[in-house]
Nucleic acid binder design. Structure first.
Lengths: 116, 116
DNA sequence: CAGTATCCGAGTGGATACTG
DNA sequence: CAGTATCCACTCGGATACTG
């Protein structure tokens, strides 16, 4: 992510919210995490389909970042054609309260803005 | 925000998490909300000081967006020199579970990554 | 004090083509 | 199938100068 790095949290007062956003705040990361939370295990192509308009480049990039942060696990099957599965790590699952609160509020907000 | 608009939530499966991020996901918004949650009312200059390295342009911009989304309230006092106060709206306060969960996880994550 | 206006470099993310 | 490699348009956000 560009818009948030851990270093930038160092203001006069620290903001742990930024830390969280530096991990889940990528353009497609919420969607990826949401899907993996609801589906347990997904292949690259399945994720791509579910996310709709994401490009391969972006999907790969965001998945790599999540993997680097220890949020997801990437399992490669040595087959032809290749097969790669993604799932949340235990650490990644610790995000679920965060994601659920965000989804809650987001659902409400969506109703608020569409019903006026 | 550029990296997330409500429209982009329209994939095959909707992701309400993205909706939330479209509101609080700006580069400085978490910090602003965090400060307003902890301090109730802050003037423009006070916010700027607390956020450390933010520029006037960015602070103004992010505040306007939060105001447009109904998250914060901007109160102008017709004085010289001018005085403007910001605080969370009731709707903005409904974000506190989200912010608190994010802060929780962020605090833990910060320890995780710094202690290895 | 609390902005607005302008300029500009860096980074993001999309489209496309290619590969093991 | 699941990537990697380029190219490029666009936007974000920082620096600076000016104002009611």
């Amino acid at each position: 992510m560009s818009f948030l790095s851990e270093k930038e949290c160092e203001g006069p007062i620290k903001c742990p919210v930024m830390t969280t956003l530096s991990v889940i705040g990528g353009k497609w990361k919420p969607g990826i995490l949401w899907e993996l939370q609801n589906n347990e295990i997904l292949r690259f192509g399945q994720l791509k389909k579910r996310l709709g308009t994401i490009t391969q480049k972006m999907l790969t990039q965001q998945l790599r970042e999540l993997e680097t942060d220890g949020i997801i696990i990437r399992k490669i099957y040595p087959e032809v054609p290749p097969r790669v599965e993604y799932r949340l790590s235990d650490y990644g699952k610790s995000l679920s309260p965060v994601l659920n609160e965000m989804a809650n509020w987001g659902t409400g907000h969506l109703q608020t803005i569409t019903s006026k």
